[in-house]
Amino acid sequence: MSAVPTESEGLRALASRLTVPLPRKTNLLRELRDDLDALTGELIAKGLDPHEASRRATIALVPDDITVQRLEAMHSTRYRRVTARLDTVRLRRLERGLMAAALAVVTVAGGLMLAPVGVTRDPSPFLWPVTVLGLLMVAACLAKGFELWIKGDHEKPRRGLTAIVVLGFSVVALGAVGALIDSIVLFEQLSMGPDHAGRLLLDGVRREATLLAVSLVLAMPGAVFWLVSHQWIAYVEDAHRRVFTPESPLP
């Protein structure tokens, strides 16, 4: 019995060895699969039995370890090529630094946009926890986006998406609960019949509206990011799966 794998075994083994981004891996495997099918067919037409034809096509076309290394160097992301010489610890520090800097830029930009509107003037006590949760969600989105589209690490593409959903939901939920509690406190104050009831009511409504608006504005990019990344992952995973189902047309 021959130790050389047949076509589908060769494809699966190659898929597990290649660590390039999933869309590039899919294209490589798709090209190889079509060539394997065609060469096998041609060898069968020349009189070889199907198993032997598949075996020979695999020897000719499925890359060995050295060729896989060449393909990886060629098809890895620009980020991976640039950082290839850095050791893991230094690279991790650099990535964390980049994430922190990106989050700081987003925070400052958001602060500069919101400050003139008077969001932080006499705020609800819930505004700061909502903001912190929102920033955590933005950080999670930045980290995931970096992993998916800059680093090209698609080993576990869905990892972290649930955390984004939970954080986004928490931001909105805390904003809504905060507005509700603020309203109860406001109505209690109003029920005492203070002299400045009108002013108290206006300030209270503004505070609660601000809290709700900030929580929605913070949650919105998380929802959009989740939707886009979820759809993108579903698309590339589907295309990748189709490589191993010979009868299905590829997108």
Binding site: L32, I59, P63, T67, M74
Partner: peptide, 17 residues
Amino acid sequence: FQFRHGTLYPILHRLEA
């Protein structure tokens, strides 16, 4: 001349790039 073990693909992809 023979291309074995997929050596053809890095050549094709480099030429394409």
